[in-house]
Amino acid sequence: MAEFKLAAESRSEFGKGASRRLRRAGKVPAVIYGHGTDPVHISLPGHESLLALRTANALLDISIDGGKHQLALPKQVQRDPIRGFLEHVDLVIVKRGEKVTVDVAVVTHGEAAPETLVVVDLTSLAVEAEATHIPTELTVDIEGLAAGTQILVRDLKLPSGVTTHVDPEALVVNVTQQVSQEALDAELAESEEATGAATTEADSEAESTEGEAGEDA
């Protein structure tokens, strides 16, 4: 996996006002911690960080104030919900050769058999991998799969050195028979007919109750 080099600066001002000033200057407030070190508050270059963090589990090579480089993974990324710019980033320090647990996206490749519906029940999988060899995604080949086919965690082909502790019987992909429009229309008509019959029966019972009440009066 690629490493993204980012030159960070230490910061001593905190709070919403300080963070807004940083973002106006094209920088991103962040904190880096891990491996027994105290958290260090830093600012990252905005544009370069935005590009790097488009990659899931991006491995960042951080240098602070021109000092020594250290590797880090994004732990939490806060983005503006409307404009998408980075608001704050939490980074955790990692070492080469160290194994980490991260969530990796599950994506399908190919086309299942005609008239089938493919449902991805598990969109990401927690895996354990070396910090410098985290897969960008886990690909599931669904080419030509027939209705009724199910792919479980134990069926996944994980890259070398990558493991998971997720239940091996957990459902990842489910291929079902696609329901035709005619079948949907028939089901809808049947439902409407049943609803109409129930309404008619309820109306009849109400009229009967009203009649009995009139006789009693």
Results as ranks from 00 to 15, higher is better:
Thr209Ser: 10
Arg21Asn: 08
Thr132Asn: 14
Gly15Asn: 10
Ala197Thr: 14
Gly214Ala: 10
Arg20Gln: 13
Met1Glu: 06
Thr101Ala: 07
Arg11Phe: 00
Val172Glu: 05
Val89Arg: 08
Gly26Asn: 07
Val102Gln: 07
Gln70Met: 03
Val92His: 10
Leu184Gln: 11
Glu13Ile: 07
Leu91Asn: 05
Gln178Lys: 10
Ser49Gly: 01
Arg11Thr: 01
Met1His: 05
Val92Pro: 01
Glu48His: 02
Ala131Met: 04
Ile32Asn: 04
Thr176Pro: 02
Leu22Tyr: 09
Glu212Trp: 05
Tyr33Thr: 08
Ala217Val: 14
Glu192Asn: 07
Pro39Ala: 15
Glu111Gln: 15
Val175Cys: 12
Val31Ser: 04
Val89Pro: 03
Gly161Trp: 00
Leu53Ala: 11
Asn174Asp: 14
Ala126Arg: 15
Ala189Glu: 13
Glu87Gln: 14
Glu98Thr: 00
Ala113Asp: 11
Thr163Asp: 10
Phe85Glu: 08
Val40Ser: 00
Leu50Lys: 03
Pro135Asp: 09
Leu71Ile: 02
Thr195Phe: 04
Phe85Val: 07
His109Phe: 12
Thr209Gly: 04
Ala7Thr: 13
Ala202Thr: 06
Thr200Ser: 13
Arg83Asp: 09
Leu188Cys: 05
Glu210Lys: 12
Val153Leu: 08
Glu111Asp: 15
Gly214Ile: 08
His69Met: 00
Asp103Ala: 15
Glu190Ile: 03
Leu44Arg: 01
Glu192Lys: 06
Ser10Val: 07
Glu187Arg: 13
Met1Gln: 11
His47Trp: 12
Glu115Tyr: 15
Leu125Val: 09
Arg79His: 09
Lys16Ala: 15
Leu71Phe: 01
Pro81Ile: 11
Ala58Tyr: 00
Lys5Arg: 12
Pro74Gln: 08
Val118Cys: 15
Leu122Tyr: 08
Val166Asp: 06
Val40Tyr: 02
Ala146Trp: 13
Val94Met: 03
Tyr33Trp: 13
Lys95Arg: 15
Ala56Asp: 05
Thr199Met: 04
Pro29Met: 01
Asn174Ala: 11
Asp38Pro: 03
Glu193Gln: 04
Glu192Thr: 01
Gly46Ile: 04
Ala126Asp: 10
Lys75Cys: 02
Ala183Thr: 06
Ala58Arg: 01
Ala146Gly: 11
Ser63Cys: 08
Thr163Met: 05
Val28Asp: 08
Gln150Val: 12
Gln181Gly: 09
Ile64Phe: 00
Thr55Cys: 06
Ala206Phe: 05
Thr195Ile: 10
Phe14Arg: 14
Ala113Ser: 12
Val179Arg: 15
Lys68Phe: 03
Ile151Tyr: 03
Leu117Glu: 12
Ala131Pro: 05
Ser12Ala: 03
Ile32Ala: 02
Ser180Val: 09
Ala217Ile: 12
Pro159Arg: 08
Val153Ile: 11
Glu215Tyr: 13
Ala30Pro: 01
Glu212Ala: 05
Gln178Ala: 10
Val119Ile: 14
Glu182Ile: 07
Ala213Tyr: 11
His69Cys: 00
Lys68Ser: 04
Leu91Tyr: 03
Arg154Cys: 08
Lys157Tyr: 04
Lys157Ala: 14
